[in-house]
């Protein structure tokens, strides 16, 4: 029978390091999906995932067990991703004039007919990623959690450790920042 998270954690804390492996196997898909929201290159994604699991092992004593292990792990993952965003702000100054052809085409189609559904979803996704890369780390985190993952303010406060009013203030600022970036796209492409 498959051992539960609580049993595996108890075994690890008693010195059975091998019991950590099933935990890694079980929860890695969710960890990788979370990281891919914030990092594009696969090498970076893997580095962040390794960092998260090593931190999880070191801090396992701090897991009290009053909430599911997955929630604790996701909080750790989100904090690590946020640290990554803060230390890798290289793309924020790049210009939107360097859009790829499919991204450019998608925007052209949007300008000519904003209402119909865009066909090239991959180009739109790339464009979204490019836009998110231009946001500050807190704005990117908030937009991702609030607008893309559609989480509530309370949930975000729990995940990030920020207070509810702080999440609201940061969400307001993030939306303003997003609009500013979009206006920059419009200005660079069509003025």
């Amino acid at each position: 029978m498959e051992r539960t998270d609580a049993e595996l954690i108890a075994a690890v804390l008693q010195g059975d390091t091998a019991s950590f492996e099933p935990l890694v196997q079980r929860h890695s898909p969710r960890v990788f999906a979370t990281i891919r929201r914030y990092a594009r290159r696969e090498s970076e994604v893997e580095d962040i995932a390794q960092e998260i699991w090593l931190k999880a092992f070191q801090k396992l004593k701090g897991f009290r067990g009053d909430a599911p292990f997955e929630h604790w792990l996701m909080r750790l993952a989100l904090h690590t991703c946020y640290d990554f965003l803060r230390s890798h702000r290289r793309n924020r100054e790049t210009s939107f004039s360097e859009l790829s052809d499919p991204e450019d085409d998608w925007l052209e189609r949007f300008v000519s007919a904003p209402s119909p559904a865009a066909e090239d979803a991959a180009a739109a996704r790339q464009l979204v990623e490019r836009l998110l890369e231009h946001l500050s780390p807190p704005a990117r985190l908030i937009i991702t959690l609030l607008e893309i993952e559609e989480r509530s303010v309370k949930e975000i406060a729990k995940l990030t450790g920020w207070s509810v009013p702080l999440v609201k203030v940061r969400a307001f600022r993030a939306r303003a920042e997003m609009r500013k970036v979009l206006a920059k796209v419009a200005k660079e492409k069509y003025l």
Partner: peptide
Amino acid sequence: RKLLAVARAAPPGDRVPYAFEKRIM
């Protein structure tokens, strides 16, 4: 609105590299 809808509709993949757990261990 449209860009966010696209992002929402396409969640990132949850593929884990081969033998990742072995590397961690």
